[in-house]
């Protein structure tokens, strides 16, 4: 690990004035950066893809939810993939697109935030975090041009404004602040329709979680690459909230209750099911 023959920490480690892990890595060991690989010409082979992520704000925070399916062409590559991750204590990141690169991007982004926090002794602002993510995506453009696209969705609690905020990105690293709600991935169009109807100002946290799950159920209904809740295997969407208290993942038993309640409402509205009321 240390090329210095004396065994001491290399100069790059003791050079002051840089609190970014990304920049340190680029100067010390650029081969470890995901965006720095040179790819041969031609299309990349089929690799697992992560699908739908939704996020919406509520009174005092933000909720993000992702389904658990990864697809490889027409095949299901994974039923239990995690696509929503805590970026740090006050923010959450969800990813859609090429799974391998997306997961690496998340790992690097989490480390980037933690590294800054440890070196500076302070948290980055939410805008600062969002801009950092944009920079990382920009360096991935070469891979994206070959079909290895990653589209993240970033959300967090802004400690300065005391409110939840959502940021979306495009493959060139463009960063856009979204208001109210947003969705990315193959089922995003259907999820957005659902969010548009159900979102309203002043939502409570429980309602927001339920709306997020419902949007994923609606997306799964029409998009083959998005999985609905799987009651038989007990696989639920991954739902996380960020409030002034920090990141929290909604536990599975709460989700199973929400899913059951949604199914019951759906059965009543279509006049099916054994409920003879």
């Amino acid at each position: 690990m240390s090329p210095d023959p004396s065994g001491r920490l290399p100069r790059a480690f003791t050079t002051p004035g840089n609190s970014s892990f990304l920049e340190f890595l680029a100067s010390y060991s650029p081969a470890l950066l995901p965006g720095n690989r040179i790819l041969p010409a031609g299309n990349a082979p089929v690799a697992p893809h992560a699908t739908t992520i939704v996020a919406l704000t509520f009174d005092g925070g933000v909720v993000m939810a992702g389904d658990r399916r990864a697809t490889m062409g027409t095949m299901i590559a994974s039923r239990q993939m995690d696509k929503v991750f805590p970026a740090d204590d006050y923010s959450v990141i969800g990813v859609a697109g090429t799974a391998g690169i997306a997961v690496e991007l998340v790992r690097l982004f989490q480390l980037e935030l933690e590294h800054y926090e440890k070196i500076e002794g302070a948290l980055l602002s939410l805008d600062g975090k969002a801009n950092r993510l944009a920079t990382m995506l920009r360096s991935n453009l070469g891979l994206a041009m070959q079909g290895l696209t990653v589209i993240p969705l970033f959300a967090g609690y802004d400690l300065g404004r005391s409110a939840g905020r959502i940021f979306s990105y495009d493959i060139t690293g463009g960063r856009y602040e979204e208001h109210e709600h947003h969705s990315v991935g193959s089922g995003a169009v259907f999820a957005r329709g659902s969010l548009k109807k159900r979102w309203q100002p002043g939502l409570g946290q429980d309602d927001a979680v339920s709306i997020a799950v419902e949007a994923l159920v609606d997306a799964a209904d029409d998009d083959s690459a998005t999985a609905g809740p799987d009651s038989a295997r007990e696989i639920w969407p991954l739902v996380a909230t960020v409030t002034s208290a920090g990141y929290r993942r909604i536990p599975d038993d709460a989700l199973s209750g929400i899913v059951a309640a949604l199914a019951a409402t759906h059965q009543r509205s279509t006049g099916r099911g054994g409920d003879a009321s």
């Binding site: 690990m1 003791t14 002051p16 892990f21 340190f24 890595l25 010390y28 933690e114 590294h115």
Partner: peptide, 18 residues
């Protein structure tokens, strides 16, 4: 020692990442 501290954070984060 601040310099050594930063070097230590870099060392640990790089190791954990690799």
């Amino acid at each position: 020692f601040e310099n050594l501290r930063v070097a230590g954070v870099r060392y640990a984060d790089l190791r954990g990442y690799s």
